[in-house]
Design a protein around this nucleic acid. Sequence first.
DNA 1: TTGCCATATTAGGCGTGGCTAATGTAGCTT
DNA 2: AAGCTACATTAGCCACGCCTAATATGGCAA
Lengths: 233, 233
Amino acid sequence: MPAGMTESGLTRSVEDYLKAIFQLSHQGGFAATRDIAAVLDLAAPSVSGMVKRLSEMGLIEHVPYRGVQLTSQGRRAALRMIRRHRVLELYLTRYLGYDWDNVHGEAERLEHAVSDDLIERMAAALGDPRYDPHGDPIPTAAGDIEETELVSVADAELGAELELRQVGTQDPARLRYFAEQGLVPGVRVTVTDRQPFDGPTTLFLASSGTARIVGRELGRLLWCAPLGLVEER
Amino acid sequence: MPAGMTESGLTRSVEDYLKAIFQLSHQGGFAATRDIAAVLDLAAPSVSGMVKRLSEMGLIEHVPYRGVQLTSQGRRAALRMIRRHRVLELYLTRYLGYDWDNVHGEAERLEHAVSDDLIERMAAALGDPRYDPHGDPIPTAAGDIEETELVSVADAELGAELELRQVGTQDPARLRYFAEQGLVPGVRVTVTDRQPFDGPTTLFLASSGTARIVGRELGRLLWCAPLGLVEER
DNA sequence: TTGCCATATTAGGCGTGGCTAATGTAGCTT
DNA sequence: AAGCTACATTAGCCACGCCTAATATGGCAA
């Protein structure tokens, strides 16, 4: 086996591209070259070059000047990386004293180095978890991932009773702020108010009996399920 | 910071070379190009090329046609990698169900990816351990390593009472065999016999009251301290 | 002393994965 | 319909880290 490869037979770079493309083509669409470049912090021509290689490897479909889409093989590899990342985040948080705001970078590097065997040992130690510390679903070892319809706090209807499910950022400062505000996965909130012109949303937290005002930018990071429709998790 | 680098600012390759050179120049001497190549499973010219770079980086001294030696900076970097490797081996063994015969490869890949922070968290969880699962001393975070005079079973004097301290192989088959035979660090043995012409050594195991016959090749892998001079560890 | 042989080095090449500068293309706007 | 602009691609470059083939060196043996 050639050098520079991880257990999957792919390079670290390839693994990072696939993960980025997966996240960008979330709703079935195409991922644009410049968006991939932005996510990975690379120059656009570097992405063009890699796109060519990934496409020759059968991991993506490339429509010139349109963007790329994962093939089923590429999707499988991407989900594998996401499983690794999320299992690592949860393990580090649960057993090694990491917090949800500083665990991302460590998992980002480890996800390329650990064996599948180690990931499964960690998952077993964690009791085959379904969600990572940010509430994101952990794909199964078989490559299935839960897809739930969620609504962001910024878009939720007035009066809606919601359960906060996922916090969609890895920015440490924002995560620390959310934690301070008690805005963590599992919390139940009611949307009591929203200012006009895309203004901030006011939430009532059932548990603490207090209110929170959440601006547009942060509100878009807080993903909720309508209460009442809440399945057990 | 340029790409392809680990937390130390060195590449994976560089880290591997330094570790190999450290282990080869164990007793203060020079490490030869071909020995480095053999340890890392590379062609000799690849090593010549890297030697040039390492030497320009100030990590080694190179005497052409003689070999290389670590500078103090190189030694520090090598000991850091050895600490990482050994802490990882012990952590994986203690907490994630690995055995001493299958933990090496996993640690070998992780040692390049984990942060110093994570290593220190693991070390803390383990109670600042001094020895890895094979009995090898773990360098401190400050870069000090215990140096003990040990004698191999193959060279030990007849009648000597010894404590087995280190098992000097990573070969799974040999390690499993040693474990089956009860030849693990901490065990006390007496050298009761040795066949002539570099023949096998017979050991008496105090704990089980049984004898073991150990051939030359394996005997050289079992490193012992004379009993009586045994400091607490 | 001269060869020979093991070892080391130099020469030249390749794949990966970045970069900048130059060029092409699609789609909106006037 | 023409042109502008944002985006994508191609061209050409570089560092890293490996390789094989060719050459140099040092030490032992005849």
